[in-house]
């Protein structure tokens, strides 16, 4: 299977990356090269093998359900490219 320009456009959209039209064909070639190389994984027999979920044998830890931090609105807003009071400003979402 090969990666074509339409696939690249679809993936770019899903990735939320504006890809200029002239980059679509080169990107298709690059991704195609990588996926061709990855195809060797099809040689491996994975019947009955469980997918890895954790490299270290450890039960997922639970913490106490209490507030540990908060009241940091100023710190949270400090790096916002555009904000007003304690709100992030974005282009209009709903007409």
């Amino acid at each position: 299977m090969s990666v074509d320009k339409d696939t690249v456009r679809r993936i770019a959209r899903l990735s939320r990356i504006a890809l200029p039209e002239e980059r679509c064909a080169p990107m298709a070639g690059e991704l195609d090269g990588i996926f061709k190389w990855v195809e060797q994984l099809n040689e491996v027999n994975v019947d009955g093998v469980q997918p890895m979920t954790s490299v270290v044998e450890q039960r997922l830890k639970m913490r106490d359900d209490v507030v540990t931090d908060g009241n940091s609105a100023n710190a949270l807003m400090a790096n916002a490219p555009q904000g007003e009071d304690h709100f992030f400003v974005v282009p209009k979402v709903v007409e």
């Binding site: 994984l41 099809n42 994975v46 093998v49 997918p51 890895m52 979920t53 490299v55």
Partner: peptide, 10 residues
Amino acid sequence: RAQKIRTLIL
């Protein structure tokens, strides 16, 4: 498939 092969590598 990749996560299964990861199990085999470990």
